[in-house]
Amino acid sequence: MIFKKNWKKDWAVCANELSKLYPVDWTQKRLHALDRLDLYVRRGEVFGLLGPNGSGKSTTLKLILGLLNPSSGSVQVFGAEAGTLEARRRIGFLPENAYFPAFLSGREVLRYYGRLVDLAQRKLWKRVEELLELVELTAAAARPLKTYSKGMLQRIGLAQALLNDPDLLLLDEPTAGVDPIGARQIRDLILGLRARGKTVIFSSHLLEQVQEVADRVAILHRGTVIQEGTLEDLLSVREQTQFTVSGLAPVARERLEEWLRGEGAEVLEVTHPRERLEELFIKAVEKRR
């Protein structure tokens, strides 16, 4: 690949031939978590990392953060080496199954993390209240985290990832264990961030959710990218066409099918569209609110 001089700066993240080996035991046996992975994420895009468990999604995110050191290859974040303070200043991270110091209250934990991202006290306190508002936890802010539900913890996790107003947000399985409404809030939040020009990388194995928000996805398997591209490219089946029509009488339907056959097309399937369970659930619950 040939890039212009400052090419690395145009990307939010670029990983080059990234490999990660984990020692398995005392012998020299090693586990290839990542195997020469190439990954490029543009600025301002929502990028989905897909893959089965153990395919290397979390490892990739940790390498971008510098929590792990690559065995070979390199990662840059906005042109800076991954793991440097410069890189970490611009990242917000929500780990998988985020666990927080349970002895602190929601507000305390945000203030604690806020001090670590170098916010001045007055600014920090204001920011914390804003974020509590954003994730709808103002009412529970004084309660210790051990009384929080899974969804609330995930929201606190999001709030702490946003403390430093990051340019790049890394979310590891953000919707795992969260109810559909919470998941949708998270989705809306991601879309809102994209609208503000932020870059989001998230991993998931819930494909539908990825489909709803991601601009581009990469599918990982055994530490390498096996598919990558925009959803448009990956998902559209160009030789098939789907209509959704309302008010079609059975007679009209038969005539239509006949006509299509006459045009040389093969009718593969004629069904009634069904509401997705998720939408049904959300509609039902929201009516009660």
Binding site: R88, R89, P95, N97, Y99, F100, Y113, N164
Partner: peptide
Amino acid sequence: ERRTIYMVLCKPVR
């Protein structure tokens, strides 16, 4: 073990 350390070390903390 609880990975709360991630929350600290992903911030600009040495």
